[in-house]
Design a protein around this nucleic acid. Structure first.
Length: 259
DNA sequence: GCCCTATGTTAAA
DNA sequence: TTAACCTAGGGCT
């Protein structure tokens, strides 16, 4: 259950432990039967875009998306352990092991299919070369609420339910505001805030969003302004944190700080 | 052990 | 709008 920062961390791990080597790729569970097409070939590099992970093997690109259940298990071994549970894909290089369980997607893509996936992805705040302007324009043209736009991977990629709530709180912006009614300087500030905060997530593995608590030592209970804090007093104004369901997801906000 | 929940997305109704 | 995907952790008994 990752947001973009987790996927970028996974890409970093693959680049460190598996890239530029011939990697064994198998599917103990059997549901990734195409593994044989890349098994034993060279992993050129790994790259994350938003919540998508791309592993560039010489014969083809492997796209992995964890969805809500997917999990990675990285480990070092002396003798290769038997797969535990349902392992969709197992990657081995030397004594390095990565087991993938329960992903929504683990599939080989043609160059054309890869391009189609890219075309559906909005700019990623974790990618220094991504186009902030595209994000600003999409929001400015939309009558959809900013709360929904931040979760739309074709508008901005890598943001999930936690960063959405926290970014909107930090911007003092009500999630129900239609995109076109949000002043462009505020939309730009949200982007810049994501650009500042998400690398902390990549670095530490934690979504650090709370001013004054932006270190890895932040305790879980202190970590967020809003996420999973419904009914508890807002850290800024003391008002109880609101919750509602928006497009199947829990939306947290402070009605006083985000009028 | 049982029940609930989850940082997500797609396809069908 | 709803169901499906189908793993793992946490709180409870």
């Amino acid at each position: 259950m990752p947001e973009g920062h987790t996927v970028h961390r996974t890409a970093n791990q693959f680049n460190k432990k598996f890239a530029k080597a011939k990697v064994s790729v198998t599917s103990p569970q059997g549901r990734f039967s195409d593994s044989s097409l890349i098994n034993g070939t060279t992993l050129v590099s790994a790259k994350a875009i938003g919540k998508q992970l791309f592993l560039f093997f010489e014969p083809a690109v492997l796209r992995i998306h964890l969805g809500i259940y997917g999990k990675w298990g990285f480990s070092e071994f002396e003798s290769l352990p038997e797969p535990k549970g349902q392992v969709r894909a197992r990657f081995v290089n030397g004594n390095q092991l990565a087991d993938l369980r329960g992903p929504t997607a683990c599939e080989l893509l043609s160059t054309e299919q890869y391009q189609q996936v890219l075309d559906r992805l909005g700019p990623d705040p974790l990618d220094p070369s991504s186009d902030k302007q595209r994000f600003l324009e999409k929001v400015a043209r939309s009558s959809v609420t900013i709360g929904q736009l931040l979760m739309d991977q074709s508008v901005i990629s890598g943001i999930g339910n936690v960063y959405r709530a926290e970014l909107l709180f930090r911007a003092n912006l009500n999630p129900h505001t239609p995109g076109k009614l949000v002043p462009s300087e505020i939309v730009g500030a949200i982007w810049e805030d994501a650009v500042a905060l998400m690398p902390l997530g990549v670095k530490t593995g934690y979504m650090l969003t709370r001013e004054g608590f932006l270190t890895a030592k932040t305790k879980k209970i202190d970590r967020y302004y809003l996420y999973k804090r419904e009914g508890l007093p807002c850290r800024e104004c003391g008002n109880p944190i609101s919750i509602e369901i928006l497009a199947t997801r829990k939306l947290y906000f402070c009605s006083r700080c985000q009028p």
